[in-house]
Write a protein that binds this DNA or RNA. Structure first.
Lengths: 112, 112
DNA sequence: GCCCGATGCCTTGACAACTTAGGTATCAGC
DNA sequence: GCTGATACCTAAGTTGTCAAGGCATCGGGC
């Protein structure tokens, strides 16, 4: 994980998924693609992290799922934000802002 | 961990510690205080996370330690950056920048 | 004299999350 | 018929943080 080796910083995946769904339901595979495409592959989500995260978040009541069909006519599970999920998105976005700003400020301090 | 419950995002502690030492050696307790003081307690490091992190980073050759005395005349273990540690600081700082910027950009996309 | 809080270090156990490495099924295109 | 993309999933292993303790020293207040 993290800044040394991993591809993702542990704990930031949830808010990315929530954000991906803020425009409306998407299926898991599409969420992963959205994240990587809209960051020019700067952020990449392993499927082994993504699917468990979706299940976890649904268990917590942040997401609601429903089987449906993709544009290509394929079977897929679509996830949508619940009311609780929207609150989480707002809260975690806010927390990310203050957290990342705090870290950035520290790291920008001129070392000698 | 992370944006929901924890106080720290898993994987960002290392770079904070490295940064704390970029002005010269410090002891563990002082590193923790530096982080929390210079962020107005926005970032707080549990000792149960800090000390294992120091040992880990020393094991990886990023830090070098030496027992000494604090300003108050108390016994303490001082950690300094090795050459490898400086490289890590540079690399992880860079990685944090691009990573956090990517996340921030995503989260700032206007939802609907 | 005694206790408390601050300074300083440490470890253990539980838990959460990510990575690695698989697996399944369908469909389009060559 | 095979490969790659689409779409889902799981299990094992590793890592890192949190919670909750522990120890020792020192200063100050009562």
């Amino acid at each position: 994980m993290s800044l040394n080796d991993g591809v993702l910083i542990a704990g930031t995946l949830d808010v990315l998924v929530l954000k991906a769904l803020s425009w409306g339901p998407r299926h898991g595979y599409g969420i992963g693609r959205w994240i990587s495409e809209s960051t020019d592959a700067e952020l990449a989500v392993e499927e082994g992290a993504l699917y468990p995260a979706l299940h976890r978040m649904e268990r917590r009541g942040w997401l609601e799922s429903k089987w449906g069909k993709t544009d290509l006519g394929r079977r897929a599970k679509f996830y949508g934000l619940s009311r609780k999920g929207r609150r989480q998105l707002a809260a975690q976005t806010k927390r990310w802002k203050s957290y990342s700003q705090a870290v950035s400020l520290l790291l920008e301090k001129s070392s000698i």
